[in-house]
């Protein structure tokens, strides 16, 4: 079990949108939807840039997704899988909220 790192306060997040953060030396994206926080890799594997936190959050057939701001592929917030190209995925990180702070491991 890897250690938990405190990233920021929940109040630093933007509801229904993403925020970029640094976890150890990795660029991650935090999404705050329906009072829940999701943490995924911020690196767009298709566009090859750290931009996922700037994508639009939404739902496709009930599944919460973020759309790449570069080429508009959709990635599941819970599994990281790309809906259009199943062979591509974002890394998903564990998240917890404690005392108004966001922790990632």
């Amino acid at each position: 079990m890897s250690e938990w790192v405190k990233i920021c306060a929940v109040s630093d997040l933007i509801a229904d949108a993403g925020v970029p953060a640094l976890f150890k030396d990795q660029a991650i994206a935090l999404f705050y939807v329906n009072d829940q926080v999701y943490a995924l890799s911020n690196y767009d594997p298709i566009g090859q840039a750290n931009v996922m936190s700037r994508g639009i959050v939404g739902s496709i057939k009930g599944e919460l997704v973020v759309a790449s701001p570069l080429y508009k592929e959709h990635y599941s917030l819970s599994t990281g899988k790309c809906l259009e190209k199943p062979e591509v995925a974002l890394t998903v990180y564990s998240v917890k909220v404690e005392g108004g702070d966001v922790w990632v491991s």
């Binding site: 229904d16 949108a17 931009v51 700037r54 994508g55 639009i56 959050v57 701001p69």
Partner: peptide, 22 residues
Amino acid sequence: DKKNIPLQDTNDRYLGNMQKDG
């Protein structure tokens, strides 16, 4: 406006045109 930020394409959110490297 904060409630409009989640609606915007990144270009509108950051008031610039995003290039390929972000």
